[in-house]
Design a protein around this nucleic acid. Structure first.
Lengths: 184, 184
DNA sequence: CCAACTGTACCGTCTGGTCGGTAAAGTCAA
DNA sequence: TTGACTTTACCGACCAGACGGTACAGTTGG
């Protein structure tokens, strides 16, 4: 599945993410991506035979990165109560601190065809299931999941109401709530 | 600002919302809206001189509806502690129960130009401010706001992970948390 | 009659995708 | 080694369709 020379593919995916973020999801065109990646449209379409395939790869790429980060963090704090929920929180906070770039490729994919987000849906469902299953208070974990999705999606849509300190407050409150929900 | 004969305008806005929802935000075209509304593109462009104006009106329309509903509910439960936060919760639940249609016009507007969502941003900011200002536990109100946005936006993007009973659980838990945070 | 409104035909642009070509790198038989 | 042939990766011209918007000719209620 992986190409022999991955440099072009990676470069294109990066360019695509940049274009989606900067040009806006309504102007996500192959020409723009090709120009940004420094090759012709022919070359782009050689690597990704259609726009759909490109968007698909963009979503998959993003999802793999998130999944890796989450699993990594969860592994380090395994065994502790609410480990996964806490990791979910921590990873969300990390991602927001490190890269302020939004994964707008997801929106571009949504614009093309909503079904492109199905992998994201599956991933979220699985994550939530694991979170509630390992939480001392499943209902609280559910609320935490929703609040973090709220943070993530408002930022993704440019509807972020909170400034940095308010976001920090929200994270802290969620941590407190999760911790307070421990059995004994 | 309002036309003398509002029936066309309302019919068009309804049709536009339907098209955005059913055809997908990437295929939100004037032709499609006109066909759906049962008039020609000329007629459509007579009522809304450009696509931008149509999307603008779509956002404004949606926002006015939400605002009215929220204010109405808040007025009925005024004076009680956490009145606005509770109203925000109740209205979100009502909207989900009554109309399962998503306000996908917002997404179509976003695709055209992200700045179309600025009114939504302002509204959200104002609502959140009022919520936290009148809440016995502002941090909890903040979390509740985010959780509800999470519910709303996951549904809007087709990323809804929760089934009806899980959503009901989430609402209940949020109510409990808000109530438990009362001063005395 | 007139203004509000609607329909039809059309234009220019943008865009996804096709296609023929090509330069470079490899493969391989003699 | 070398020359013939294949594969890889890419370019650039082009096309067909979709789309936003314009022009203008009706039509109709008051």
């Amino acid at each position: 599945m992986a190409p022999r020379r991955p440099s072009s593919r990676a470069r294109i995916l990066k360019a695509a993410a940049d274009v989606a973020r900067e040009a806006g999801i309504g102007h996500f065109s192959l020409d723009a991506v090709a120009a940004r990646a420094g090759l012709s449209k022919g070359g782009l379409l050689y690597n990704f035979p259609s726009k759909s395939k490109l968007l698909e790869a963009l979503v998959e790429d993003h999802l793999l990165a998130v999944e890796a980060e989450l699993n990594d963090h969860a592994a380090r704090s395994a065994g502790r109560p609410n480990a996964l929920a806490a990791s979910f929180l921590a990873v969300a906070r990390d991602q927001e601190r490190l890269r302020d770039e939004q994964p707008s490729g997801l929106l571009a994919a949504l614009a093309e065809d909503p079904s492109f987000l199905e992998p994201v849906l599956r991933f979220n469902r699985q994550t939530l299931t694991r979170m509630t299953a390992t939480a001392s208070d499943p209902h609280m974990a559910l609320v935490a999941f929703l609040a973090i999705e709220g943070l993530r999606l408002t930022r993704l849509l440019g509807l972020n109401v909170l400034d940095a300190s308010e976001r920090a407050t929200a994270y802290a409150k969620l941590e407190t709530l999760l911790a307070a929900s421990r059995p004994a």
